[in-house]
Structure formats: structure tokens, C-alpha cells
Design a binder for these strands. Sequence first.
DNA 1: GCGACAG
DNA 2: ATCTTGTCGC
Length: 236
Amino acid sequence: MAESLEHSWQLDPKDAVELQRELRTRIRLQPLDKPIRFIGGADISFNLYSDVFYAGIVVLDYATLEVVETAFHTETVTFPYIPGLLSFREIPTLLKAWAKLATKPDVTMVDGHGIAHPRRMGIATHFGLVTDSPTLGCAKKVLTGRIAPVGKEAGSVSPIMDKEELLGYALRSRLRSNPVYISPGHLLDPESALAIARHCLRGYKLPEPTRRAHEVVNEFRRRETAESSDEDNPTG
DNA sequence: GCGACAG
DNA sequence: ATCTTGTCGC
């Protein structure tokens, strides 16, 4: 029986890396054990130079890709942005939004990488481990791995490889857009992650879960930012 | 030693 | 990650 992993998020970068090496042994890459009815999209937004984070999670009906639920949370973060340690900066806030969801999605797409990470512990993987739920990562830039050029046609893919290990796929999600990088997070395998990402394409560069999460969390941040501004500068 | 480096 | 309108190209 799988267990959800509990651990501190207040770590020094060195300890965070050590924890990643331990958590790595818990990753399970496998097909889903049940059909997908709901898919989640998770994203973080913040004002430039600010450490006030806004987390948003959307739940979409997998068949129609319509948003059926949203949850948000905002708080101040302290962990710095360090490539390879993104999860320690963003996951705590995401978890508090996750806790507010009435419907936990069957699989969640996280903005960033899954196992396409130097220690296989990208934010999507880490999020899947701590929530004990299937996840995949959708990133806009490469972090690690070798990738042969992706075909120009929409739908073209090229594997993300580290030596002989398949980490995920670069996917040309639409014509004339740079590829997105899809990798399994936890409780999913590379092929399933790719199939899910493709299912979620609707003519935009980003798959719907990530695209909609980014959209609603930005609306949330701008709304909240405007409110606190009003309190300091009442207009009427 | 040098270059790369998710959000 | 975020700020931003128009503009060039397919």
C-alpha cells in the first residue's frame, strides 16, 4: 500500500538535495490503474521581485476539458529559486490549494518537469509523491537530458534521453510553436504522460490543464493584488 | 575548468 | 516567473 510522504520544507539546499536522493527511491512509473474522469492543472504566479506566491489548481472534465473546479491559496515563501530545487519553493503553497479541492483529480499536470530532472525529482514528481497521486510535468524549457530535433509538424515528438534512460518527450504541441517537454511525475509512465498531454491539446501551445491553471491563477493574483492596493489607497 | 540551468 | 502593443511571418 502506497503512503503519502511527509517531510519538512524548511531545508538548506544541501539537505534538500539529500532528501531528493531519498525520495527518488519511492518513484513509481506505471500505467494508471483506472480511467481518467478528472484531470488537474497546477501553477504558481507572483509579482516580479515579490515573495508573495499565488497557487492555483484547476480541475477539468477529461472528456470535455471544461473547468469544473478551481482552488487557490496565497502566502509568502522563503525558499529561493534554485534550478533543480524548484519543488521546495513552489509545492508548499500548491499543497494548501490542493487541500481546498472538493474533487481530487485522477491525474494532475504540473507546470515544470517530472522525472526529466538530474535526480528525477522535478516538481511534478515531488508533488505526486507528497499527494500520493498520479502526476505529469509540462515544461517550456529543458532542464536535463538529450533531445534530437523535433519535427516541424504539429504532433511531432522526440524522446528526452539521459544515457539509455527515457525521461519523457519533447512535443510540438502546435505548428510554429517551440515544443513543450512532457515527463511522468509519479504513478505514471512516459508513454501515458505523452498520451494524456496530447489528449489535452486544443490548438494552443500549452495543454489545457496547464493553460487554464496559468490563466486562472493570474486572474487570482491580479485580483488579490488590486484589493490590497485598494486597502492602502482607498479611493471611495 | 566551463557551460547549463524548470519556474 | 512578470511587465506589454504592436508587429512580422506563416
